[in-house]
Design a protein around this nucleic acid. Structure first.
Length: 618
DNA sequence: ATTAGGG
DNA sequence: CCCTAAT
């Protein structure tokens, strides 16, 4: 989270904003530090090496750091520059990608393009994988917490490292014109004027800098970065990877870029378009990828009008998930919060509190603690956490709210007696939006208080949404135990959120039921689902119930159901449903309501609905 | 701790 | 999936 930069201690020094107003002189650079011979340029300006810490404050650099920098700048040639500015970028990707695998793949995709550019320039660029990331990780963290803006770093605007500002350029500058950059341009042979031309072509703006070296550096960097962006020019549409309009992509922020790259290269890297082969042919192929593709496919089919969408839409969490707590509190009082407080205040004296259902007491009790804190002015505002769960391990649904703003808002509102919708819901919604939306639809809400943990966590959450459609023989155990459970920074656990059943899981379930009998779910869980830690016996039971429902409701409904059921997830193959029905019949589990209407003889009669051999179409 | 059912 | 009640 630290960036080594050079800052001028002298007020007179010009600030290099990275875009305009280049003075004719050499731009601020670390070079001055190591330059043992200030004579040729008796510049009164003194440069001091500092670090920018997380808050944007400047901290004197340690000797060690100075040495490192000196080392890096020992030989300031263009190729070094190229390599240098690549470091942070690559490492940012590392941070930006939810999975290591993604990182690797995206890096590959990019590096190839970058290499092209490098070749054109007659320069050598280090492969991303080989880059030592000592200092890069630092800048990476920094740029994430302060996306695309030097503003977040007061007083250090001028100190931003060259490569950083150039990245900003690319993100904000309009469409560069690459026409001049075709073929192999050897920057070394160009005149200043030509270099300026090239610069203009690269960045889309004029420059008055006459310094050849600087120009070359900038141009080469620009090329590198631009190509970098071009790799994001993919979109997934109905299982195909399409090329996207470059222009559009170039406007994406780096953070988004990372995500997009991840997705795109995932698909591009796949051996084939066929999902089955994709999953089956490569044993190591991460299920998640297959799943994400499947999911994409489904969503497209679900709503043809959305085919043009470049990014997946995010399904907002069920309202129930969000409100969960508010439900009970709201009844009986006007405002939920008020009711909470009331229940607390009256707990001691009011008999009503005593008669309150247990869960209500529990529900009210938790928020109260935090409220007491805020009222007492302790200053420590604890974010609102979902209710504590008992029984099987659960997770807290809400990620921690950033800096307790939500609570503050709530408190204020309550104080003002503002009726309105429950503030907590709003806040939670906001948080959800920001934490669940994949970045490329939406500005990054870089909550100031969010740390890296949160960030990674968020990525994980995002990924999780694409996770989960598994194919028959694809590998599922893949140590996903962890996947449904994202530890929150508070130490609590986020709630498990929809883990679609894979076909193999279903099969196992069915087998299990066949073997051990329906109802013996803990048994089945233990024996047949040993490897699926995220499926509890209750889950099995629920799933079985659904299977039952499905298997029996399918036949009769068949006609009116054409477009009705847009299978949001995997359609369960007919044979399996058939099997389910058989088992159900066998075990006399056929609730009359499931079967095709007529409730004649109930449990025993096994021959009734079975006749309809035409069973599942699906 | 497990199960059955409702939501 | 979650939650509860009933075993």
């Amino acid at each position: 989270m630290e960036t080594v930069v050079s800052m001028e201690a002298n007020e007179e020094a010009k600030v290099e904003d990275g875009i305009a107003k280049e003075t004719g002189s050499e731009p601020v650079s670390l070079k001055h530090i190591s330059d043992p011979d200030p004579d040729p340029e008796p510049d009164p300006v003194v440069y001091k090496l500092v670090r920018v810490d997380g808050e944007g404050r400047l901290v004197p650099a340690t000797d060690e750091e100075v040495l490192v920098v000196e080392d890096l700048l020992e030989d300031e040639k263009p190729e070094h520059c190229a390599a240098e500015c690549e470091q942070p970028i690559e490492c940012i990707k590392t941070e930006g990608c939810p999975l290591q695998k993604n990182h690797v793949q995206s890096s590959e995709g990019i590096s190839s393009v970058q290499l092209d550019a490098a070749v054109d320039l007659g320069k050598k660029i280090i492969q991303p994988e080989e880059i030592p990331c000592q200092m890069a990780s630092a800048s990476a963290g920094n740029s994430i917490s302060q996306p695309m803006s030097a503003v977040g770093c007061p007083g250090s605007e001028g100190g931003l490292v060259e490569n950083w500002s150039s990245r900003t350029d690319l993100a904000t500058t309009g469409k560069p014109d690459f026409s001049k950059l075709k073929g192999e341009i050897c920057l070394d042979n160009l005149t200043v004027k030509e270099l300026q031309e090239t610069f203009r072509a690269t960045f889309g703006r004029e420059t008055f800098v006459k310094d050849k070296r600087w120009l070359k550096r900038r141009i080469s960097m620009g090329l590198t970065n631009s190509c970098d962006f071009s790799t994001t020019a993919f979109m997934i549409k109905d299982n195909e990877v399409l090329k996207k309009d470059k222009k559009e992509n170039r406007k994406k922020s780096a953070v988004y870029k990372d995500l997009v790259v991840g997705v795109a290269s995932e698909t591009a890297g796949g051996p084939t378009n066929g999902l089955n082969r994709l999953a089956d042919s490569n044993p190591n192929f991460d299920d998640r990828k297959t799943e994400s593709l499947l999911l994409e496919h489904d969503s497209v089919r679900e709503d043809p009008s959305l085919e043009q969408r470049t990014a997946k839409r995010v399904r907002k969490p069920t309202k129930r998930y969000i409100e969960e707590m508010s439900e009970e509190e709201s009844r009986g009082s006007s405002g939920r919060l008020v009711s909470v407080v009331k229940s607390f205040e009256h707990r001691q004296s009011c008999s009503k509190a005593c008669t309150m259902p247990v869960q209500n007491v529990r529900l009210a009790g938790r928020p109260m603690v935090t409220r007491q804190d805020s009222l007492g002015g302790s200053g420590v505002q604890v974010p609102y956490v979902s209710r504590v769960r008992k029984g099987r391990p659960r997770e807290n649904f809400m990620p921690f709210m950033p800096s307790g703003i939500g609570l503050a808002t709530r408190t204020v509102r309550r104080a003002l007696g503002e009726p309105g919708p429950a503030p907590q819901d709003e806040m939670q919604n906001e948080v959800l939006k920001s934490s669940l939306s994949p970045g490329w639809n939406q500005q990054p809400i870089a909550a100031a208080s969010e740390n890296d943990n949160h960030h990674l966590e968020r990525k994980e959450v995002e990924l999780e949404k694409y996770v989960e459609l598994k194919r028959m023989d694809s590998f599922e155990d893949n140590s996903d135990d962890n996947m449904g459970t994202v530890p929150a920074s508070s130490g609590g656990m986020r709630r498990k959120h929809h883990r679609p059943w894979s076909l193999t899981e279903v099969v196992k379930l069915v087998e299990g039921v066949a073997r051990y009998g329906a109802g013996r779910w803990s048994e089945i869980k233990r024996l047949a689902f040993a490897s699926y830690s995220y499926r509890t016996s209750v889950d099995l039971k629920d799933k079985w119930r659904n299977l039952l429902r499905a298997s029996f409701s399918q036949l009769p409904a068949e006609k009116g159901m054409h477009n009705a059921r847009k299978h949001a997830s995997i359609p369960i193959p007919a044979p399996i449903l058939l099997r389910v029905r058989e088992l159900a019949e066998m075990q006399a589990q056929v609730p009359a309501n499931f079967s095709s209407s007529k409730f004649t003889g109930q449990s025993g009669g096994s021959d009734r609905s079975v006749h309809e051999t035409r069973s599942g179409y699906l």
